[in-house]
Amino acid sequence: MSLPAPLLLPYGACFPEIDDSAFIAPRATVIGDVVIGPKSSVWFGCTLRGDVNSIRIGARSNIQDGTVIHVTRGGHATHIGDDVLVGHTCIIHACTLESGSFVGMGATVMDGAVVESGAMVAAGALVTPGKRVPRGELWAGNPAKFKRPLSGEEMARFKAQTDHYVRMAESYLAELAKLG
Results as ranks from 00 to 15, higher is better:
27 R>M: 15
52 V>R: 02
22 A>C: 02
148 R>W: 03
18 I>E: 04
79 H>V: 11
43 W>S: 04
106 G>S: 04
128 T>K: 12
25 A>K: 13
13 A>M: 08
177 A>Q: 14
132 R>L: 02
145 K>A: 14
107 A>Y: 01
133 V>P: 05
138 L>R: 01
7 L>Q: 15
142 N>E: 07
65 D>N: 12
24 I>T: 09
98 E>K: 13
174 A>H: 14
61 S>F: 03
118 G>F: 00
66 G>F: 03
164 H>C: 03
80 I>F: 01
146 F>S: 02
16 P>Y: 05
131 K>M: 11
170 E>Y: 00
126 L>I: 08
90 C>P: 09
125 A>S: 06
146 F>L: 00
76 H>L: 01
110 M>L: 15
17 E>Y: 09
48 L>H: 08
115 V>G: 12
4 P>D: 13
98 E>Q: 15
24 I>P: 06
95 C>Y: 03
152 G>E: 15
99 S>N: 07
163 D>V: 07
177 A>I: 03
90 C>R: 15
116 E>V: 00
46 C>G: 11
164 H>Q: 14
114 V>L: 13
144 A>N: 10
67 T>E: 08
111 D>I: 00
180 G>K: 14
64 Q>L: 07
164 H>P: 02
70 H>M: 06
34 V>Q: 14
51 D>K: 13
94 A>W: 05
4 P>M: 02
82 D>W: 03
